[in-house]
């Protein structure tokens, strides 16, 4: 049962809960267990916790081997290392073989604000969604993280989960059913639809409030499964609107925006992609300063909405 608003703590606690009955779950960690919260699992089930040291490539391929032995391995590190340092291992040992390996990219996006560009993961969705067989998940709050972690254990195949380091306000419905692949309408609206993921869901909900005062009705859709993208649902949420905005804490190349543009290329509707321009991250005093610096606040979403409306 979830005890906090922290995505990473919820992730760790959920796996402890699931690991009680499901003895196939094993965790691998590359010496960041106190940040990724995999250490909670290590305390509960030390025999099923593999401390792999700062050797992410070996960790990913060892996970492939554990999966071949029938286990459900979760590999943990900061998102930059979990899927970047071990990219070819994930591609060859895991994704080609369709193995049941779960990758948790922790401290994703800009959320590791102090550590700067080497540690900020703004290209992980791109790298993971280009891989055939890979499922790519991006929760926006702790409630969704708990449901996703459970769903990851239930589904057979490689999954990448990108989670934020910081607490995010709760916006999803704890009582609602969840399944991988679904997208959820967070705010009803009719003029423009924004497809948002991760922290940009909260920012987009705020944007809807700003725009309401201007007489603009914004529909906000939480796209927490980037891949496989539910194109039918995507198209149905575009019905009746005059334009589309995508919003993500990720590079404008290869992320949610790219996926939506590809899927809706025949829609003939104006689309604005909000994300990090072609640049790496930087250190800052806190997370909100970085969101402002990279233009990822609610007002930035609102500007994009006004822009698509003016294109009509």
């Amino acid at each position: 049962m979830r005890t906090s608003d922290s995505l990473r703590k919820t992730y760790g606690e959920t796996l402890v809960e699931l690991g009680k009955d499901n003895k196939s779950i094993v965790m691998l960690e590359a010496d960041l267990g106190n940040s990724t919260m995999s250490s909670l699992f290590g305390s509960a089930y030390p025999e099923r916790y593999f401390q792999m040291g700062i050797a992410e490539q070996n960790m990913a391929s060892v996970a492939a081997g554990l999966s071949l032995a029938g286990k459900i391995p979760f590999i943990n590190s900061f998102a930059v290392f979990a899927r970047g340092r071990a990219y070819d291992q994930i591609r060859s040992s895991v994704a080609i073989a369709k193995l049941n390996v779960k990758i948790c990219g922790s401290s994703a996006g800009l959320s590791d604000y102090g550590d700067g560009k080497t540690h900020q993961s703004i290209d992980d969705i791109a790298l993971m969604q280009v891989l055939p067989n890979m499922t790519v998940l991006s929760p926006c709050d702790a409630i969704e993280t708990e449901k996703m972690t459970k769903a990851m254990v239930e589904c057979n195949g490689p999954v990448y989960l990108r989670i934020n380091r910081n607490d995010l306000s709760l916006v999803t419905d704890p009582k609602a059913d969840y399944k991988i692949g679904q997208m959820t309408e967070m705010v009803k609206g009719k003029d423009v639809v924004v497809f948002a993921t991760g922290v940009m869901v909260q920012q987009s909900i705020q944007a809807a409030k700003i725009l309401e005062k201007e007489g603009i009705s914004l529909r906000v859709v939480n796209v927490s499964t980037i891949k496989p993208l539910d194109v039918t649902a995507l198209q149905s949420y575009c019905e009746g609107v005059k334009g589309i905005v995508t919003a993500e804490e990720h590079s404008i190349f290869g992320g949610l925006g790219s996926a939506v543009c590809s899927a809706l290329s025949m829609k003939r509707l104006p689309i604005e992609v909000l994300g990090i321009q072609d640049s790496f991250g930087t250190s800052a005093e806190n997370y909100s300063i970085l969101l402002k610096h990279y233009g990822l606040e609610s007002e930035d979403v609102a500007k994009k909405v006004r822009a698509v409306l003016s294109a009509n």
Partner: peptide
């Protein structure tokens, strides 16, 4: 370079 790691994972499993 990956097969020895995969073999190790299998052995641990």
């Amino acid at each position: 370079g990956q097969g020895l790691s995969v073999a190790l994972g299998l052995a641990l499993g």
